[in-house]
Structures are given as structure tokens and as C-alpha cells.
Design a protein around this nucleic acid. Structure first.
Lengths: 159, 159
DNA sequence: GTTGAAAATAGCACGAA
DNA sequence: TTCGTGCTATTTTCAAC
């Protein structure tokens, strides 16, 4: 009889994560500085195996990098906001460059809908927020929503 | 004459980062898995000193944790969207719980303005997106903007 | 994917600026 | 206090299987 393929490597169209990979990703998402030997213990494999899997996940582009979760408030940026930005006609690229050059915009997505940009802004004070938005006001209409709290902290989707 | 305090430790009200701390954070943001010895080389200090500084940055809550930057598309989540969610009267907490229990919502902020929640959604297909939004539709009004691209990748604000 | 050995690293105590 | 040195335990890496 013909062999039925196990579901291990066919969970999605692209990078074929198996259970071990999924557990590695979850563990590294929780603590990216785990040593390979500790990670290996958690996964129940040898360190070289786990190390090679991490290397492959990086090479495959699944892991784009290892980074820190920084509390911007702890370094003085007391206010966070989400800003929708609608450049005036002909100002799309100018405005995009302005966003990129303002380091207080720590993230910006290009989205569908009336407002082409949705950016995450951190500032030390209301005055600084006004400065940033004022600078854009000549070239774009903005809608700012201050972040009051977090319902879901960054997490991985189901693997 | 009285001693003038150097600007090293007074850059903000809270955690007093000096230049070394700032460079450590920038280096770890770029690669959180740098060894302490490598990091020490980059910063120009001894490994124990740098190690102690990292420990303190964690203890101070500046570094909340070390994590991975995962490419959700590489694991099959082809579509990303930002969803504004306005619960119907009396449904605020119910809707918040629903968001939290849907793992495809990988991030959700509580914001000021007409829509109390702004969530990041990843899905494998339009059908899955419809499922998620449909589940909410009984208790909330949603506005969905598909993410077409990124203008600013997550980065640190000025330190 | 595992094992085992060599090189690199981390963590600790202690001393110096 | 904050940083550097020297020690030991752990970890990483590479080879062979």
C-alpha cells in the first residue's frame, strides 16, 4: 500500500515547519537569547540539531532577525500614538520620506483605504507630538489616536 | 565652582541611559543574539561590564525581553491587515476577549477616538480574513485596511 | 540527528581607578 | 560606583558516525 505522508511538513505552502521548528520559534519568541543547549533541552533534541534548525529558519527567511522588546516609556517616550496619514495630492512620496526621516515614527505600514499610511509614533511630551504632526500638516492630513493600553501584546500567530 | 553635571545621565526623567547603554541597545536591537564578548568589542568595554549593563537594563524594564522578528508570510500568513474595531454598546469587554482569543490578531492596542481597538491581523487567505471579521460582526463594527507594504520597519526611537 | 573534543564564551570573585 | 582581570563552568562549533 502507498505511504501516506505525515502532516509534519505540509502545514503551509511555503517553508514547511514541523513541530520541532514550531516549538523552536515559540521558545525563541519568548526568549531569543536562550542558549542553543538550553533550547535543545526544551525541544528534546541535541544542541547541534537545534542550532542547525535555527540556522535554516534564518536562511529561509522565517526568522528575519533577533531583536529586543524595548519599553519606550522607560526611556522617556511617555506617549505612544497611532497616526493615520493622508498626503495631499502629489505629496505621497514626500510625505513618506518625511515619515521615514522622523525617528519618532518607529513603524509605518502602507495600507489600503483613504489613508495610505498608518504609523506608530512615540514622543516624550504633547509638545513633541505637536511638533511632529505640525511638520506634516503642510503636506498631509493626519488622524491621531493616542494609545491608552494594550489588549494583545505582540505574539506569534498559530504555527 | 560647582560641578556641572555631564549630559550622560540626564537625558530623560526615568532610567538615565548613557552613551554606552544607548549603543548597547542599538546593537542588541540589530542582533539580540550577539554574545556579550562580541557586544563588548563593539562597545569598547570589557565583557563583564557590558553584561552587567544589559542585566541592569533588563532589571530597569528598559529591555522587556529578547525576541525574534518573524516573517509571517514565510509561514503561510500571506495577508496582513490593520483592523479598527468598534464594539457595539455594552460589548466592549466581550469584544476585547474575542480579539485576545483569536490568535490571528497578533497585536492590539487600546486607543482614543471612535474605535477603541486597533489590531494587527494576519491570515492565510481572504476566506480566513472573512471568518475572523465575520465572527466579530455580531458584536462590533470593523474597518479593515490591508497592509500593502512597509515604509518604516520597527526601529528604536532616538536614544 | 547524535556524540565527543577543541575553541569560544559566560559568570563569578576580586582588585583598581 | 563602575570597570577590568583571571578563573572555572558552560556553551558553541566541527568532525565523524
Amino acid at each position: 500500500m502507498s505511504k501516506v505522508e505525515s502532516p509534519k511538513n505540509v502545514r503551509n505552502g511555503k517553508s514547511s515547519l514541523d513541530d520541532a521548528d514550531a516549538r523552536i520559534l515559540a521558545a525563541l519568541d519568548a526568549d531569543a537569547r536562550l542558549s542553543m543547549s538550553e533550547l535543545a533541552r526544551l525541544i528534546g533534541m541535541s544542541a547541534p540539531s537545534v542550532s542547525e534548525r535555527v540556522r535554516r529558519l534564518e536562511a529561509a527567511g522565517v526568522i528575519r532577525g533577533f531583536t529586543i522588546d524595548l519599553d519606550t516609556r522607560a526611556i522617556g517616550y511617555q506617549i505612544r500614538a497611532m497616526v493615520r496619514i493622508r498626503p495631499l495630492p502629489g505629496k505621497l512620496h514626500l510625505v513618506e520620506r518625511m515619515i521615514q526621516e522622523r525617528p519618532e515614527f518607529i513603524e509605518c505600514d502602507k495600507i489600503t483605504g483613504d489613508d495610505p499610511f498608518l504609523a506608530r509614533l512615540v514622543v516624550r511630551s504633547i509638545e513633541e507630538m505637536d511638533d511632529v504632526l505640525e511638520a506634516l500638516s503642510e503636506h498631509a492630513v493626519t488622524s491621531t489616536a493616542v494609545i491608552k493600553g494594550t489588549s494583545v501584546k505582540r505574539r506569534l500567530p498559530p504555527l
